[in-house]
Amino acid sequence: MAHISDTTPVSVGAGSLAHSRGATWRDRIFPFWNLVFLVILAATMIVPFLNVLAVSVSGPLASSRPGIHLWPEAFTFEGFRTVWVNVGLERAFVNSVIVTSIGTTLHVILASLAGYVLIQKDLPGKKLLVAFIIGTMAVPSELIMIPLYVVMKQLNLLNTLAALVISGLVSGFSILLMRNFFAGVPYDLAESARIDGASDFRIFTNIYLPLSKAGVATIALFELVGRWNQFLQVILFINDSSKYTLQVALQTLVTENMSTSGTSMVTPNVRMAGIIIAILPLIAIYPFMQKYFVQGISLGAVKE
């Protein structure tokens, strides 16, 4: 926080005292407009979702009519039933749960292991390792989608859920984040444990992990959200609709002309029900998230 001292020109001189009357008036009017601004802002976020929710529980006919839909008309859960059973979103949902849970678990394990290795003070080759890991961060996955596709093909992983679990198995970002968390654990603790004869792995599981729960939670939540929303990898690697994840099934529902022509009618209530299903799990874990996300960003942004 070296900035504070040199960037605080709080030199409010005598000149401003002359305006102090205006200032009090402004100080009174400001909170009001501020409140109005925030209410409008919140409305731009809430109204769209309210619209989606209202349509999702409206009847197919009512949802197809023009007009403003902020309240359910001909209330029914038919849209949810249609999208879950007839459109088959259920399987896509299950696939997403599988990929997300396995992918996130492995990601957290690998990132913490690597993060732990990187805090060792006397590890030969550490600089090289750090460079190796940071190097991967300069290569955004989108930019290697074509060769990644070729690699998955060579490994016979196309059209498998394994391909989805593997892509993003670990990331430089998460490793550095874990390293930054671990760096906050007193090194002496590890030293004394080592002197007592504890193995590296034991020090990791018994000292570092318990003391870095917040770190683990941060990358787990980051990864969870990222995995749940994973899209490009799925359209890249998956052919068969039985292996689609929720996002791609939803995209087919929302924006594609479905080639399975005989299926029941995809009315707005069906589409919006699909959207609600896709966001519900995220809303469920949301309460835990806000705190960790900020923590993650501020720690992750610490420059190497």
């Binding site: 088959g88 399987r91 609709s241 995209q251 594609e256 080639s259 005989g262």
Partner: peptide, 29 residues
């Protein structure tokens, strides 16, 4: 019409012919 029905369909094919069918069924692109 759904991935689950694809399975039933392949089973029905097996019932009718005795052959195994591995049906890959993209619904977009």
């Amino acid at each position: 019409k759904t991935p689950d029905e694809d399975k039933l369909w392949a089973d029905e094919f097996k019932r009718l012919t005795g052959w195994e069918l591995d049906l890959v069924h993209p619904t977009a692109d």
